[in-house]
Simulated scan of single mutants.
Amino acid sequence: MIESWVINDDSPGPVLSEVVLEALRARIDSGQLETWLISSSGRSLAFVTNTERAMVMLLEEQGDPGEHAVDPGCEGSSDGFGLSNGQHDEYPDQDTVPIGEAFRLVEHIVGTGSWPADARWIVDR
């Protein structure tokens, strides 16, 4: 079976890799900076942005520390990562990626179920 993904809070059906970026951009434009996608196999893909950088996390199941995209060598931190509960977080820039890269990662994961071969990510388990 091919894994399918839905946006956790507003998707009536599966979101395809070809349109996931359009959905993310529409959510960002409406002020929704946190998006969770849930796969048919029970995995979760988190995308949290401040509109310039994003944290992208892939979790195997609920409670899994998961794995996340990184930008090795990047210094400093960025704030403004808005969560759906109203909280605004700050993350080290090395634990986030530029938003264009985050879009590429999400599109690839939704399309294939795995990180792109050239992606930089670490396992938090």
Rank of each mutant, 00 (worst) to 15 (best):
S114C: 09
H88N: 03
D89I: 06
G73I: 00
D89C: 12
C74N: 10
S114H: 13
L21R: 15
A117I: 02
M57I: 10
W115R: 03
E75Y: 09
E34F: 06
L58S: 09
R53E: 14
R53V: 05
Q87R: 14
A117S: 13
G31T: 14
R25H: 09
D95G: 09
P92E: 14
T96L: 03
I38Q: 02
A26I: 03
V56F: 00
A119V: 06
Y91D: 02
E18S: 15
W115M: 04
G113D: 11
W115Q: 07
S78D: 14
G63V: 11
G73C: 04
S77G: 08
Q32M: 09
I7T: 00
M57K: 07
Q94D: 12
A23K: 07
W36D: 04
Q62H: 10
R125S: 11
V15I: 12
T112H: 15
A26G: 13
D118Y: 02
G80V: 04
G66I: 08
L21K: 12
I28D: 03
Q87T: 12
R104L: 05
H108P: 02
D93H: 10
T112R: 06
V123Y: 08
G80C: 05
G42F: 09
V56S: 08
G82R: 13
F81I: 03
Q87M: 13
V19W: 00
E3L: 08
G63Q: 10
G100T: 15
L33H: 13
L21S: 14
